[in-house]
Design a protein around this nucleic acid. Structure first.
Lengths: 108, 108
DNA sequence: TTCACATATAACTATTTGGTTATATGAAAT
DNA sequence: ATTTCATATAACCAAATAGTTATATGTGAA
């Protein structure tokens, strides 16, 4: 079970995910977007890979990274559900909205 | 700005928050609900306090802990917004629902 | 006043994290 | 075949985390 708090718990990793939202990227592009070293970026990518939030593949000598939207969805729902439960009804009905894809409330 | 990822990034802290959802608790009650030492629990409580997710007060010799729902709300919105942006429109419209307290979508 | 008990704090340990530099590997191009 | 360039990995460092045990502090009750 991917640990979404670990994956999203660092702002560099959140920025990497935002980049990947715009489309697949090769490692070099990601490295160049930050001021830290290539090994540091690679460590962040490894954490995102461990948590299954992204995937990697080869294209010749290039490493290609892409988002795993399904895993993100599931992670998102987990957090939404947990925090939603800590808060109150207003937010719980909205959790149902996400899960069922429809807006259904008591007051029709 | 409270770091909700830090606060929620540990399952003991998530369980503590769930307990506090049920009502204010004294430290002793929280300690007894876990298998770890009192100082260990106190450290978790300190992290939740640093991130402003909970508050503490005194009642005689008892420390009382309570949830800060407003801060949780804000944290919730932040995460909703960030992850919503990584995913797609379905989820973004729901962010608006939370923020405006109403369901308004393009396709009325 | 003394004792009991709830809480706080200090000192220590092991692990993880986020970074570094230096170096190895492997594919592509010259 | 050699060089270039993208990537991987190793070794290191400092700080934070999650726990421990031992001890101090403060309040209430006997």
């Amino acid at each position: 079970m991917p640990d979404v708090y670990r994956a999203l718990g660092d702002s560099t990793r959140r920025r990497i995910l935002s980049m990947l939202k715009q489309g697949n990227k090769i490692q070099k592009e990601i490295v160049e977007a930050f001021d830290i070293s290539q090994p540091a970026i690679k460590k962040h990518l490894n954490i995102l890979l461990e948590e299954k939030i992204i995937s990697e593949s080869w294209d010749g000598k290039y490493r290609i990274y892409s988002l795993n939207p399904e895993v993100l969805q599931i992670a998102y729902h987990e957090m939404l559900q947990y925090i939603g439960e800590l808060l109150d009804d207003q937010l719980v009905s909205l959790k149902n909205y996400v899960e069922k894809g429809e807006f259904r409330d008591e007051q029709d």
